[in-house]
């Protein structure tokens, strides 16, 4: 089963990549874009058909390695059809 993880910096944490990209978008004339936050997208292949088990594996992977819990949040997305 494929599990998707989105990792974002917490709101209180400065996001220089997002800020720089936002400046560039402003320069390109995107007046209605008022903020940019840049995070990470991670796709895991988990050897199971059990969505709970897949979610647990992804959670542990985030807590142990993939996310820095001091400054990042993670969101786990399972396929719609499970």
């Amino acid at each position: 089963m494929q599990v998707e993880i989105v990792i974002t910096l917490r709101e209180s944490i400065l996001d220089p990549k997002g800020k720089a990209s936002h400046h560039a978008l402003e320069n390109l004339g995107f007046k209605d874009i008022t903020g940019v936050r840049i995070g990470k997208f991670i796709q895991l292949d988990v050897d199971t058909n059990d969505p709970d088990q897949a979610r647990r594996a992804a959670e542990q992977a985030c807590e142990k390695l993939l996310a820095n819990m001091v400054m990042e949040d993670y969101e786990i997305r399972l396929p719609d059809n499970v």
């Binding site: 400065l14 220089p16 990549k17 800020k19 720089a20 820095n68 001091v70």
Partner: peptide, 16 residues
Amino acid sequence: LEARLLPGTMMANEQL
């Protein structure tokens, strides 16, 4: 810091 042998964390430089 990542190993938690020291407290806190490191972010990208403020001035990008």
